[in-house]
Amino acid sequence: MGTATGIIRALNSGIKHLAIKRFTLRYPEEKLKFVGDGYQFDPSTGVGIAGLKGRHLLFHDHCTGCQLCSIACEGVAEAIAMVKVPEEHKHNKKAIMPQIDYGKCVFCGLCVDACPFYALYMTNDYELSSFSKEGLIYTPAQLQVKPYVQQDSEIKITDRGASHG
C-alpha cells in the first residue's frame, strides 16, 4: 500500500467518526448505573453479592461491637477504628462501633466479608472528596445514613456506536 493511500485511509476512518454518537458521560448531571445497591456479603453461604464497592453503610441495630471488621482492616489499611457510641443498643453491649477513615480506606470490601452479623454493607456512593482530612473520617452516625443516589445512565450499544443515552 502506498503512503498516500495509507494516510487517506487513516483520515477517512477518523472522519467517519464524525457521524457517530458522542460517548461522553456528562458526569455531574448523569451518573452511571451499577448492579444492585452495592457490595454485600452473605455469611451463611460465604459468597458475596455483586455490587459496587463504595462508601459503607452500617446498621446500628445489627452491630454487636465484635471488632472483626477492624481486625480485618488492621493488615490492609488500618482505616477502621472502634469508637464509643453514646446510645445503648440491645445487641451492642460494648457500645463500640466502627468509624471509617476514607483517607485510608482502599474499598477492598474485606471488612464486609468479615462481618458475620449482616451489619456492614457497601453502597453505591463514591462522591467523597473533601477539603480536609477530618472531613474524610465518617463516624458511626454518618455511616448509618443511606446515601441518596440517583444513578440511571447506562451504556447503550447501537449500530451507530456506544453512548450513554
Partner: peptide, 10 residues
C-alpha cells in the same frame, strides 16, 4: 466459621 479467614487474632 462463616466468614472468615480474615480474622487474625492470636
Amino acid at each position: 466459621m462463616s466468614s472468615d479467614s480474615e480474622t487474625s487474632v492470636d
